[in-house]
Simulated scan of single mutants.
Amino acid sequence: MKTKQPVMIKGTKEGLTLYLDDACSFSELIQELRAKLSGQYEGQEDRPVVTVYVQTGYRTLRPEQVEEVKSVVREQRHLVVGSIQSDCLTIEEANEWRRQNELMCVTKIVRSGQVLRAPGDLLLVGDVNPGGEIAAGGNIFILGALRGIAHAGCEGNKSAVIAASFMKPSQLRIADYVNRAPDEEGTVDTHAMECAYVDDKDQIVLDRLQELAKLRPALQESFEGGLGTWEKP
């Protein structure tokens, strides 16, 4: 059975990428890294400077280990370290991911001139009055009337949706797409909750909330019992 090499080197047009095994010991990794670099480039002192990008897989390096890897690479005078990257999330990245993906629940009326923002999904129990605005990095769900402005996916997520018990907005925005309120009543059944989403023609359209189960299957899994449980009695 062929064992995985502690260090693999791949040349690219940007330079060299070093893939470091995340299962072996760090001391073994350093030993193999030094041997591979010196063996491959020995006697080539006139080579041009090459940028090295290090991939550590699921290994998280301590600051002193990062410096040791850089030191070994720099032993070859024509090599400079461009970056050292891991597939593991840092604590800061994990906290940011959680912040952007958690559901923020708010009970209030957003009045004219007020702005309510959420980094991830937003559930508002209350109304958005004309002149009021709500914005979310993810989806927006309103158990109440939407008569003001709603901006979902405000950081560029075009898959975000807007749902409301009563949908009569002055403006809808999803990512960079904008749709002003229609001048006439649409064909959507007003006795059911409505939703807005960006279709395959890059247009914001309104439909019954239950249609999202087919259009955004991931949302169906987010609610116990499915999106159908949001329908008005």
Results as ranks from 00 to 15, higher is better:
K4W: 06
V7C: 00
M8C: 00
E14T: 12
G15W: 05
G15C: 07
L16K: 08
T17K: 01
T17M: 08
L20M: 04
D21G: 11
D22Y: 06
S25C: 13
L29S: 05
L29E: 05
I30K: 05
E32H: 09
L33F: 07
R34H: 03
R34N: 07
A35W: 01
G39W: 00
Y41I: 00
Y41G: 03
Y41S: 05
E42N: 13
Q44D: 11
Q44M: 09
P48A: 13
V50Y: 03
T51S: 09
T51A: 03
Y53E: 06
Y58M: 08
Y58H: 02
L61G: 00
R62L: 04
P63T: 06
Q65N: 07
E67Y: 03
V69I: 04
V73W: 06
Q76W: 03
H78T: 03
L79Y: 02
G82T: 07
I84Q: 03
I84C: 04
D87N: 07
D87K: 12
T90S: 09
A94G: 06
A94H: 11
N95I: 03
W97Y: 12
R98T: 15
R98I: 15
R98K: 15
V106W: 04
R111A: 01
R111C: 01
R111Y: 03
Q114A: 15
L123M: 15
V125T: 15
G126K: 08
D127Y: 13
N129T: 15
P130W: 09
G131A: 13
G132W: 15
I134K: 11
I134G: 08
I140A: 08
I142L: 02
A150E: 09
H151C: 10
A152R: 09
K158P: 07
K158R: 05
S159L: 03
A160W: 08
V161H: 02
K168Q: 06
S170E: 13
L172R: 06
N179Q: 12
R180E: 14
A181K: 05
E184K: 10
G186P: 00
T187C: 04
T190E: 05
T190A: 08
A192Y: 01
C195E: 14
A196G: 12
D207W: 15
Q210N: 14
E211G: 02
E211W: 09
L212M: 14
L212C: 14
A213G: 14
E221T: 03
F223G: 08
L227T: 07
W230Y: 14
W230K: 14
K232G: 07
K232H: 09
P233E: 10
